[in-house]
Amino acid sequence: MILGAVHFPPIEDVIEWPAFLFKDSDLLAFNKIALIHFLSLVIPTIVFLVGSRGDGLVPRGARTVAEGVVNFVDTQIIQAAIGHDGRKYMPLLTSFFLFVFFGNITEVIPFFQMPANARMAGPLVLALTAWAMFISVGLRHHGLGYLKEVAFPPGVPKALYLLVTPIEILSTFFVRPFSHAVRLFANMLAGHILLVTFSVLCISVWGASALIIVEIGTFPGLVAFTAFEVGVSLIQAFVFTILAAVYIGGALHPAH
């Protein structure tokens, strides 16, 4: 039957990409994923540089986009998660947001069709940066007392410390970076495999019959899931950034 002709490509073809520059180096091999990361650097730079030209009293054009992003990060992420003294973390959080967003949105852009965050490299680097950042913020603001406050949260009856302390230490210092990275990675990988599955189904169904009507279930599904993946890209960028902000805010004011 039709389903017998579905040939799902081997997973390496869907996820791994061959290098097209520096092919023979193990460290410097430049593939599509590295190209997407490069564009995540270049596009925001160009938009912000074009936007900062001229007098800014009435924003127009690129300045509107740049100010929209800055205002979004300021009101929805910094004010919501850290408060007023979080303004100095705006460059870091804006970089997180834009890097993750461009890594996610290429899933639906025709030439790329691959989210850079479906490979563990990007999420790992970002999660490790957020982890290092919140630990350093905690240590700088509270000294070594920060570790004591995390391991022995106030307001817990003394006997329960035996149970609570290992859970707290594991949860804050080991599980947090892991879940931070895996959330983004698994969302993007799942979305990518879903879109690939629907595309393969569309091709197989059309290959088995020449009528277009057989696409009635698969093609609308593909379109709907593409739209859904645009939403998921935005939401995952927002969630990654606001979680990083929550971790930093928790290190700044640990009383909770």
Partner: peptide, 28 residues
């Protein structure tokens, strides 16, 4: 994670962070 992707991701992310902090965000 693969070494080359880790390397390029780290390079470009820290470049973006530095650009944001010193060049791109202050005017806006």
């Amino acid at each position: 994670p693969v070494m080359n992707e880790l390397f390029w991701a780290a390079i470009f992310f820290f470049a973006l962070w530095a650009m944001m902090k010193f060049v791109l965000l202050p005017p806006i």
